[in-house]
């Protein structure tokens, strides 16, 4: 029995170890490589060059170089894209959560059959590939002069995000006892005051988890931002894609590498910060649905 257990332990440990390596090495490698020159990162002669940075030392005199970062952030004005991403992401998360908590709460408390149908409709909407929706937007947006603005993109992302947000928050609110807001209403609150005084203080675990998924959707989106924004107000992801088109010829692939690393940092910070909440938020509500 014990022997069998220890084998199982070793097996499960090595399985995790393997996954941890698979999950982290690409990032570590790209981080490391972003401080090298291109001929090391893509080494024609010897793959070990990339690790020891042979060419980097020859070309720049040091082990590491920040040329890629300078090129991307200053020369290619990546900071503009970063700023735009910041605006878009922040607005999308705030607006989605505001609409989503109100709607999810109403759905969890309604008790009428149409609430159920709204949820089913949301599920179907969730299934629509984003780019098929974009093909519905483009022409009307061109005609109405809405195309190319950050605000249009924000609203579109909020809308696309609503089905998932509604589902997550609906199942989260369903786990908060009804007695809570009902006693508040008997105590003298309107439905909205009950929501504000009694539900808002206890809803954060679910909201944080949902917010994190909204954040990922807005921050990571490519299909919508690439097609709805002009070159001038691109966000980071389409900007990186456009680097690839131009950069490869000019030998500036390292700009893209640096930009990729820069765009990944906030994601890492976020998950490091909220990792505990993701699990507890999912445990509290979403997982039961």
């Amino acid at each position: 029995m014990n022997k069998k257990n220890s084998w199982l332990n070793i097996l499960s440990l090595s399985f995790i170890l393997l996954w941890v390596i698979l999950a982290s090495v690409p990032f570590l490698w790209t981080l490391w490589g972003s401080f090298k020159v291109e001929s090391d990162f893509f080494s024609k002669q010897d793959w070990r060059n990339a690790i020891f940075g042979v060419r980097t030392i020859i070309e720049t005199g040091g082990m590491f170089t920040t040329n890629g970062y300078e090129g991307a952030w200053i020369k290619e004005e990546f900071w503009r894209a970063a700023l735009n991403t910041g605006i878009v992401t922040l607005s999308v998360v705030t607006i989605s959560l505001t609409l989503g908590t109100l709607g999810g709460y109403a759905l969890a408390r309604s008790g009428f059959r149409y609430a159920f149908w709204i949820l089913i409709a949301a599920l179907i909407f969730r299934a629509m590939p984003h780019i098929t929706l974009v093909s519905g937007y483009l022409l009307p947006f061109f005609e109405l002069g809405l195309w190319g603005h950050l605000s249009t993109t924000i609203i579109v992302l909020v809308a696309i995000n609503q089905p998932f947000t509604l589902w997550m928050l609906h199942s989260f609110f369903s786990t908060i006892p009804k007695d809570l807001d009902e006693s508040a209403m008997v105590d003298g609150c309107t439905r909205f005051e009950a929501f504000r005084h009694v539900i808002i203080p206890v809803m954060w675990p679910g909201v944080i988890t949902t917010g994190l998924f909204s954040f990922l959707l807005a921050y990571n989106d490519f299909a919508i931002t690439a097609l709805l924004l002009t070159e001038a107000n691109q966000t980071m992801v389409p900007k990186i894609a456009s680097f690839l088109g131009s950069a490869q010829e000019q030998g500036n692939v390292m700009f893209a590498v640096a930009a990729v690393v820069s765009a990944t940092v906030p994601l890492f910070m976020l998950v490091m910060f909220f990792q505990r909440q993701i699990v507890s938020g999912l445990t509290a509500g979403a997982v039961k649905g």
Binding site: P177, D179, L180, E182, S183, V186, H197, V198, V202
Partner: peptide, 12 residues
Amino acid sequence: AMVFQSYGLYPN
């Protein structure tokens, strides 16, 4: 005023 079966106290 109502007293609920499961109390309905505000946990926060």
